[in-house]
Design a protein around this nucleic acid. Structure first.
Length: 318
DNA sequence: GGTAGACCTGGACGC
DNA sequence: GCGTCCAGGTCTACC
């Protein structure tokens, strides 16, 4: 019999809306269960791997989250799991925080959108970002699946966790390239893992309000495999929304949705001007514009069929 | 500071 | 079934 715990989320929290809000919710080891409107997720805990099944039985904003695990958890592990789930679901962003965003960009007040799903750890967020660079989305899906299957820990449910920094730090480049299909990203992933294990990437400093956005962004750009796009994306994953992460998908959005014409450089300039009024929240304004457009094409994201829609969505497909 | 070319994979396409 | 081309962001060398 596994452990069950209850988590009280912010008063406006809605699990389907706030989980199915960023592409990482379809990447391994996350699995959104459409019929149950619940998230299945394997976690690395002190005494081994465990799979959490997270649901919101009340199905109303702010109603308690129920988390069931596939094995018994010690008190220490329960505390660990609560912290990991809180980070993943952005439970630190309370209702007032989201209202602050809606005050700047009123378009999302009715739907209540504001939180972007992320990973239980910064390490996983950084590696997922690296696997999303210079590649079509289906390959990102494949890389994360293989990383978990080859280097993750197996939970009683059979699901595999995302690899820990310690594990990837001692994995051979040939394994990552040959079995996980990460290509030239192999050594960069190992170097990043080693930096995490050595404490050279300090999440406390990166999230400290005393650290400026410019300083955090400049540091991220020094990391292997992290350029302007990846750094901008990691900024939002850290809860810093004042930077954009512009890529070819942004260009498509600028041209097909916002109607901009001309060279790439001109469209990028227009995009920056378009989002500038949203200031400290500009990434969210950008992202929810994109997400709303995806939903006009594929339906509401909590209903997406992972294999048919999520695994194939990419700029050129929609 | 700006830019060309390499990096690697998987999908599309033509034969 | 095979070969070729292309998309995707970062890095390095070069001007």
């Amino acid at each position: 019999m596994g452990t069950s715990i209850t988590i009280r989320p912010p008063e406006d929290y809605l699990l389907p809306r706030d989980t199915c809000s960023y592409g990482y919710f379809v990447l391994w080891p996350n699995r959104w269960l459409v019929p149950e409107q619940a998230l299945l997720r394997a976690l690395s805990l002190a005494e081994g791997a465990a799979t959490a099944r997270i649901s919101q039985p009340g199905a109303s904003p702010g109603s308690p989250l129920r988390v069931r695990f596939d094995r018994s958890l010690s008190r220490i592990e329960q505390g660990e799991a609560r912290a990991l789930i809180a980070r993943m679901l952005r439970l630190d962003e309370d209702a007032m925080h989201i209202k602050g965003f809606h005050w700047v960009d009123r378009r999302w007040r009715k739907s209540g959108r504001g939180r972007l799903f992320r990973s239980p750890t910064l390490f996983e967020d950084v590696i997922k970002t690296v696997t999303s660079c210079n590649v079509a989305w289906p390959s990102t899906v494949k890389m994360n699946e293989r990383l978990c299957a080859v280097c993750g820990r197996r939970a009683p449910s059979g699901m595999h966790t995302f690899p820990t920094p310690e594990r990837l730090a001692r994995t051979r480049a040939g394994t990552l390239r040959g079995r996980c299909r990460v290509g030239y990203r192999d050594q960069r992933i190992i170097d990043l893992a080693r930096m995490f294990t050595r404490g050279e990437i300090d999440e406390a400093w990166l999230t400290d309000p005393a650290t400026s956005d410019d300083d955090a962004f400049a540091f991220l750009k020094t990391l292997p495999g992290i350029g302007p796009y990846a750094a901008g994306n990691i900024m939002q994953l850290l809860g810093r929304y004042s930077y954009l992460a512009l890529d070819t998908e942004s260009l498509r959005h600028g041209r097909t949705v916002l109607g901009y014409e001309g060279t790439d450089a001109h469209v990028l300039k227009k995009l920056r001007e378009h989002y500038e009024p949203f200031g400290a929240h500009k990434f969210r304004s950008y992202w929810f514009e994109l997400w709303a457009w995806y939903e006009t094409k594929a339906g509401a994201s909590p209903e997406w069929d992972r294999d048919k829609v999520a695994a194939s969505f990419t700029a050129s497909k929609f």
